[in-house]
Simulated scan of single mutants.
Amino acid sequence: MTLVVRARAGQTLDQLEAGVPGLAATLDALSWRCTAYRGSTSTLLVELVMHDALRGPRDGRVPLTPTSAEPGHLLPLGRRDVGGTWGLTVAGRHTLVAGCSGSGKGSVLWGLVAGLAPLVPSDTVRLWGIDLKHGVELRMGRALFATVADTGPDALAVLAALLDVAERRGQAMAGQVRAHTPRPGDPLHVLVIDELADLVAYADRESRMEAARLLARLLTKGRALGVVVAAFVQDPRKDVVTMRNLFTQRVALRLLSDQETAMVLGDGAARTAPAHRISPTAPGTAWVVDDEGNSDRVRADYWPDPVIRELAARYPCRSQVVPSPPAPQDGDSVDETPEDGPRLRSVPTGPPERAPRPRRPRSPRAPRARAAAGATSADGRRSE
């Protein structure tokens, strides 16, 4: 249902919008959204969703035609409650997806990966993965990824390698172009992080500080250079995701409180995009807020394990890489670095052997010298 509401004398659009939740509740609407009608400062367009178009899950399907990785292109992920396809732009954006356990983060993750998958074999897109939950999620589609890190040191190596890609690409682009355009052999690098908190909040102090430093630098400089991040997290609090504001687009799956909704989608979102009210029986359902501040209720398609395996078998990555830790140690051999690839190195498989310590013959112990004039007895007399 669409309503056009005109303000009376002395009213503002903000006042009209404040009354829309009550109107929606009166008409038993499932959700609603407001926009200025054709740019007017006195007329409000109110869209009320009366029928739940998101009821029931829908399985994802392996794409059979190539997509685009250029900025502005939408990757189809699922459905909108007002009808039509819901999609996200990956190129030129850093994406944060937040949702409590069981909210359906895997549906959004594999939807993004599936949308980019047809461009993986030609190396127009290169996928990198960090999954510190033993790789349970990402290794289901391992063949799609250039590398998947499932330990803390490997994760730091992946972040350092991608930051190195951004640094060298930035030097090559300086004075030439301001935004990277993906093409075969010069790909869009997409880092997929399953459970961001394991990387930047729950590790030991030294590891999490280094991970936060590398990731913050990547989020700050990577977008225009064709190095983007898609991170998934259960707990969006500031003390867990300290660089939350560096993500340029966010998706709120089911959250636990209105405060968490505001943390993910911004101030006032708890009223216009109540992610904390999403039903636990509808995993994959989410609220998003676009660049103009308009909220949208959506649902991502579900990706069963056999479909993920089929996706990985159809579109395997041809550029498998083994990133090295950021600072080579003495004795490590560094391989030649490709022009747009990570630094690779060979690391000795065991601890370095120590050279045997030279042994010198022990000098004979000198006998204890008696006093030159003989020993002195306890009573002070000298013995001959």
Results as ranks from 00 to 15, higher is better:
residue 109 L to N: 07
residue 74 L to E: 12
residue 118 P to S: 06
residue 90 V to P: 13
residue 60 G to E: 00
residue 82 V to S: 12
residue 128 W to D: 01
residue 142 R to Q: 08
residue 122 S to R: 15
residue 77 L to S: 05
residue 142 R to P: 01
residue 63 P to M: 00
residue 83 G to Q: 14
residue 108 V to E: 04
residue 141 G to F: 08
residue 108 V to G: 05
residue 53 A to L: 15
residue 139 R to V: 00
residue 75 L to M: 09
residue 74 L to Y: 04
residue 134 H to K: 09
residue 123 D to P: 14
residue 59 D to F: 13
residue 139 R to T: 03
residue 133 K to E: 09
residue 111 G to P: 15
residue 63 P to K: 00
residue 58 R to L: 14
residue 132 L to G: 04
residue 105 K to T: 03
residue 104 G to Q: 14
residue 114 A to S: 15
residue 48 L to P: 13
residue 102 G to W: 13
residue 97 V to W: 05
residue 57 P to A: 07
residue 125 V to F: 00
residue 107 S to R: 14
residue 131 D to P: 12
residue 95 T to Y: 02
residue 101 S to N: 13
residue 121 P to T: 05
residue 81 D to P: 04
residue 79 R to V: 02
residue 61 R to K: 15
residue 142 R to V: 01
residue 67 T to K: 08
residue 93 R to T: 01
residue 129 G to Y: 02
residue 69 A to W: 06
residue 65 T to R: 15
residue 121 P to W: 04
residue 116 L to M: 10
residue 107 S to Y: 14
residue 105 K to Y: 06
residue 109 L to Q: 14
residue 108 V to K: 07
residue 89 T to M: 08
residue 126 R to V: 07
residue 102 G to K: 14
residue 127 L to K: 06
residue 136 V to F: 03
residue 140 M to T: 13
residue 49 V to I: 11
residue 106 G to S: 15
residue 48 L to E: 03
residue 61 R to V: 13
residue 117 A to V: 00
residue 49 V to C: 08
residue 63 P to L: 00
residue 70 E to S: 12
residue 118 P to V: 00
residue 90 V to I: 13
residue 79 R to P: 09
residue 120 V to C: 12
residue 69 A to N: 09
residue 59 D to R: 15
residue 69 A to F: 06
residue 75 L to S: 02
residue 75 L to K: 01
residue 54 L to S: 08
residue 82 V to H: 10
residue 46 V to Q: 07
residue 118 P to Q: 07
residue 126 R to M: 09
residue 125 V to W: 00
residue 120 V to Q: 11
residue 65 T to E: 15
residue 134 H to A: 09
residue 85 T to I: 14
residue 110 W to S: 05
residue 119 L to T: 05
residue 139 R to Q: 08
residue 63 P to R: 00
residue 55 R to E: 08
residue 68 S to D: 08
residue 86 W to V: 02
